[in-house]
Amino acid sequence: MPPPSNLRLDRLPSPLGEILLVTDEAGAVRAIDFHDYVPRMTRLLRLHHGDPPLTDGAAPVETRQALTAYFDGQFEALADIPWATGGTAFQQQVWTALRDIPAGTTSTYAALAARIGKPSAVRAVGAANGANPIAILVPCHRLIGADGSLTGYGGGLQRKRWLLEHEGARQAR
C-alpha cells in the first residue's frame, strides 16, 4: 500500500480524554491515540507511513459519529470505519484478527497466536499488538494475560481497564 500524501489530525472529546484521530485524504483512519501519547502516535505514524504532512482538519463526519456512538455504548458502530495502515504482513494479520474479538470479550495473546495459525508466536503477537497505531478501532485492549491479568496498553492500563469495563468484559481485572 502506498503511503498517504497528506494526513489530517482531528481531536475528539471522550470519557478517556481527548482522542487524536488521524485520517488520510480518502478518509481512512491511519492512527487513533490519546492526547497525552503524541510522541507514541508520531513514532507509529512515521514507522508505518513515512513522514507525510500532518495538518489540522476534520475527520469524516461518519467516523466522528461512529467513535462517539462507541463511547455511547454502540460498540458495533466501529465496524464500518475504513482504516489503513502500514506494518508487516504478520502485523496486519494480528490486527485483522483483533477486529474479530467481539466487544465484551477478551482473549489472550496465546489464543490469538493459535487463532492465526502461529501458536508459537505469542511474543510476536504481543509485539504486533503493541505496534497497533489504531487503538480502539483495532481493539488491542481486548488482549489480556494468560492468567486473566491486564497487561500493557499503549494508552495506559487505566484506559484499558475502562475500555473493557465499558464494553462489559467479564474478565477485566
Rank of each mutant, 00 (worst) to 15 (best):
L12Y: 05
L12D: 03
L12F: 08
P13R: 07
P13I: 03
S14Y: 00
S14H: 02
P15S: 03
L16R: 02
L16E: 06
G17Q: 08
E18W: 06
E18N: 10
E18A: 11
I19N: 09
L21V: 13
V22T: 13
T23G: 02
T23S: 11
T23A: 08
T23C: 09
D24E: 14
D24L: 12
E25N: 00
A26R: 04
G27Y: 12
G27D: 13
G27W: 11
A28C: 01
V29M: 09
R30A: 01
A31M: 13
A31D: 15
A31W: 10
D33M: 05
F34T: 12
F34D: 02
H35P: 03
V38R: 08
P39N: 08
R40N: 13
R40K: 11
R40F: 14
T42K: 10
T42R: 05
R43L: 08
L44V: 12
R46Q: 15
R46G: 11
L47M: 12
H48E: 12
H48C: 09
H48R: 09
H49Y: 14
P52R: 04
P52M: 12
P52D: 12
P53T: 12
P53W: 11
P53R: 05
L54F: 06
T55V: 15
T55G: 11
T55C: 05
D56V: 10
D56H: 07
G57C: 03
A58L: 14
A59C: 08
A59Q: 11
P60I: 09
P60F: 05
P60R: 06
P60N: 07
V61S: 09
V61L: 03
T63Y: 08
R64T: 00
Q65T: 08
Q65N: 08
Q65W: 05
A66R: 09
A66T: 02
A66L: 08
T68M: 00
A69Q: 00
A69L: 06
A69R: 03
F71E: 02
F71R: 01
D72W: 05
